[in-house]
Design a protein around this nucleic acid. Structure first.
Lengths: 114, 114
DNA sequence: GTCACTTGGTTTATAGTGCAAACTAATTTG
DNA sequence: CAAATTAGTTTGCACTATAAACCAAGTGAC
């Protein structure tokens, strides 16, 4: 891979997806049909407020779908990834792969496996 | 890989390295002994100001070394990655690999190759 | 019944960040 | 000498991530 191609991929990373909290949300959603707000809250360690606002941004961008209903008497918010979200994540991961790929001259770098 | 491990890796991403402009700088530096400010400016397309401030942050954190001298009559700023920078980048890339790794249930995802 | 506490979130306030415009200082060109 | 170029740095603004504060409803203790 050329340096220029790598540079292009790095700078074209989708900032909406790039943010770790949102990347986490998308990654979790990509491996489950639906996940509950409280599950995400626990597994991520994010505060409710933080999670809520990231969720809203992803929803506003159409990357996830959010459904609210009641389970028994308590509110329940469920998230799922949309087709657009799946594509955005896939594209993001494709570009990331360019970053993770071997460096041209990775002398004195870390071992390949930990 | 478990979901929890993936979550841990995503959330532990070093934000200093995670910023695309800085990731770019570190990645370029990792493959060259020294690079000039103006070379980075051109290859990255970043504005001088932006590049300068990212450079300062990386330097303040000890991830790169910046040397200033004169070439003929003009100032010349050269950047190189430090040992700490190399380690930070390697660790970042290790965690990224966790993000880029196969999703447990990647149904309907994008094709593996473009 | 009511007072405190918990659940399941959203809204708001703030601190921090990325970015380019504006600036500095020297050199070169016309 | 004046204008433009080079090589950056500083400054100010717009945006963002985050947790604190808030809200509404349910549950328990008494």
């Amino acid at each position: 891979m050329t340096l220029e191609a790598r540079v292009g991929d790095v700078l074209a990373l989708d900032r909406l997806v790039h943010e770790p909290a949102r990347l986490l949300i998308l990654t979790v959603l990509a491996s489950a049909k639906q996940v509950e707000f409280t599950f995400l809250e626990k597994i991520s360690g994010l505060s409710k407020g933080n999670l809520s606002s990231h969720m809203s941004k992803l929803e506003a961008a159409g990357l996830i779908e959010v459904t609210k209903r009641f389970r028994g008497k308590r509110p329940l918010t469920e998230l799922s990834i949309s087709a657009a979200g799946r594509h955005a994540l896939a594209e993001y991961r494709r570009r990331l792969a360019s970053v993770v790929g071997d460096l041209p001259d990775d002398t004195a770098a870390a071992p390949k496996r930990r």
